[in-house]
């Protein structure tokens, strides 16, 4: 498996997202320009210029026309995927961290960081079909969790919002009323900040990665812990294969400690685990720094990883990957 190295960002990667068809890959980095790539050959298709700060995450609509990005410049922006033009800017009073479109792309959930006196918050915005009718008002604002909310995504039928962040607690909120429905328990939950959260392709379960060196698989409806995957380094990014029962964890030691040790000690591999048996089955080396972002192609035949080193590595699996038996 020879990866394709995609060098387009000048700063560490923060987020990766495939569109639904799996032909485009969107990457966000601490430089200010989200980039779109061809997902098969890694060719750069274009960039989205306009942000004035690190871009933390993005999401693309089901029909691949609309892109939403959240940035440290205290805005979230809507873009035309094809032309790269800015359609709308949501202004906040603190950096926007996570963005996610609902089923049907009529709503978006955006989280904002704690900043100055402000606490972190989860905002729900209505997305109108016609950008000229777009309004900036939030349909709902949720507050409560301590510290940064690193990820907030929609639950089944857009009825709930699942959030996770620095306080290590996973919360499920009612997206209509804003009521807190469920919270992960102390015993089963993560012990340190949750860095990433990804839903399965059917939305039935989701995977969280945490600095406590583990990733956990949860039932989306009941918030019961299904599986735990333990690794030897902090987990920055997680993803799940839509095809096989595999999960991938990426991470590494803190960026600040990287220079003090051999690159092998940092454990910058993407680790594959069997989703059901919770056993490690393999690893993909390559990054010269912690992995910050991981994404599986919706067809399950390739995945990409983005690192602190500023590279996106696009891996197409060898045929024997699909015959792994343990």
């Amino acid at each position: 498996m020879r990866p394709i190295l995609m060098k387009g960002h000048e700063r560490p990667l923060t987020f990766l997202k495939y569109n639904r068809d799996g032909d485009l890959l969107f990457s966000c980095a601490k430089d200010h320009t989200p980039t779109v790539w061809f997902a098969d050959n890694g060719e750069r298709l274009g960039t989205y210029r306009g942000h004035n700060g690190a871009v933390w995450s993005c999401d693309v609509s089901k029909d691949s026309t609309l892109l939403v990005t959240g940035s440290a410049d205290q805005t979230a922006k809507l873009w035309n995927v094809q032309t790269g033009t800015q359609l709308y800017t949501f202004n906040f009073d603190s950096p926007a961290r996570s963005v996610d479109f609902s089923v049907g792309d009529k709503l978006a959930v955006i989280t904002t960081d704690p900043f100055m006196e402000l606490t972190s918050a989860i905002h729900v915005k209505r997305i109108s079909r016609d950008p000229s009718n777009q309004i900036g008002e939030s349909a709902l604002i949720l507050k409560g969790p301590q510290g940064r909310i690193n990820r907030a995504v929609w639950g089944p039928l857009n009825r709930t919002i699942i959030s996770a962040g620095e306080d290590a607690v996973i919360r499920i909120w009612d997206s209509e009323t804003g009521k807190l429905l469920k919270e992960s328990e102390k015993e089963t939950g993560h012990k340190k900040p949750i860095t990433s959260l990804v839903k399965s392709s059917d939305g039935s379960h989701f995977l969280t990665g945490s600095l406590d060196k583990s990733a956990k698989l949860w039932d989306t409806r009941t918030l019961t812990l299904i599986k735990t995957y333990v690794t030897e380094r902090p987990v920055n990014a997680v993803t799940m294969s839509p095809l096989l029962d595999h999960v991938v964890l990426g991470g590494g030691q803190d960026a600040s400690a990287v220079t003090t040790t051999d690159h092998r000690a940092g454990k910058f591999e993407a680790k594959f685990f069997d989703k059901i048996l919770q056993e490690e089955i393999g690893g993909v080396k390559g990054h010269f720094g912690p992995i910050n972002a991981l994404a599986f192609n919706p067809d399950g035949k390739s995945f990409s990883s983005g690192g602190e080193d500023g590279y996106v590595r696009l891996h197409h699996f060898d045929p024997d990957y699909f015959n792994i038996k343990i």
């Binding site: 089901k62 049907g104 089944p156 039928l157 409806r221």
Partner: peptide, 22 residues
């Protein structure tokens, strides 16, 4: 078993999802 149960619920919600997607 778990996936099966989920599939059932998922199936039930199909119509609603369609509605959400116009």
């Amino acid at each position: 078993r778990w996936v099966h149960e989920w599939k059932r619920l998922h199936e039930e919600e199909k119509m609603e999802r369609q509605k959400l997607r116009d």
